[in-house]
Design a protein around this nucleic acid. Structure first.
Lengths: 137, 137
DNA sequence: CCGTATCCGAGATGATACTG
DNA sequence: CAGTATCATCTCGGATACGG
């Protein structure tokens, strides 16, 4: 669903760190289109603990529907972030696992997770203050 | 600034990092609820370059509507991630800036951005392969 | 067990017009 | 300039039922 702005006539520079980021792609949009949905990150995190079967994932991630687990795993598989191994047994068995590239993503995700835990309280406080100031409205 | 991509050592690392993550809060959901929308990250990235006025932000982020910029900046302000300074001039002027905590978030975001640039090609390839295999569908 | 298919409601977003 | 208000649209995701 990426941002649909047409084109920016700025010459695309390699951009060390902060290139024309707001202007066009700093790539960040790509990642968030991938991680921004409700379940992807949880699947990645769960798989970072080891191989999981379909059912195991569903049990490990309370609230996810069968449909969304299918959709999420398929998207991740398509992007090469997780591997899907199907055994033609009866009943069927499918194993999911992070790929190498998927594990590197998990690393970046954990960095964000750390950030969240670190600042959760500060944010809650700021939010409470803000709400206190604008309550009567 | 880059929060090093801490390689996830698979099963070797038990729950040092990951609490009952799939269950409910590993905190990661909080961050993604905040960053997952279409514009928040772009605003944060733009503000990481310095102070910006409302209009400047809008020009720097092509495609964002006035409404969504208002909504996005207000949310970030509420969470204490950016500061809003209003000058009672005519015409009005409002400056936005990252707070300290907002800048630390920008750091984590850049880590993700790095990851994206690093693996963009690999993902595109994987996706093309997958699409090739499942073309007729 | 592992998916697919269909329907449908909620929330996010865009377009547009108006205000201080 | 910096919003606010309103309405139309569109995608995501949940519920449910069926299939291999």
């Amino acid at each position: 669903m990426s941002v649909a702005h047409t084109e920016v006539t700025h010459e695309a520079t390699p951009a060390a760190h902060l290139g024309p980021c707001g202007e066009d792609d700093c790539g960040i949009r790509d990642v968030l289109d991938r991680l921004g949905d409700k379940w992807t990150v949880l699947v990645v995190v769960e798989l970072s603990k080891g191989t999981r079967r379909f059912r195991e994932l569903q049990r490990a991630i309370p609230g996810i529907s069968q449909r969304m687990l299918t959709v999420t795993t398929r998207r991740l598989t398509r992007d090469g972030l997780i591997s899907r191994t199907q055994y033609p047994t009866i009943p069927p068995q499918v194993d999911y696992d992070l790929t190498v590239i998927g594990r590197s993503l998990a690393g970046a995700v954990f960095a964000l997770s750390d950030w969240s835990r670190e600042h959760k309280d500060a944010i809650a406080t700021a939010r409470a203050d803000w709400d206190a100031q604008n309550d009567g409205i």
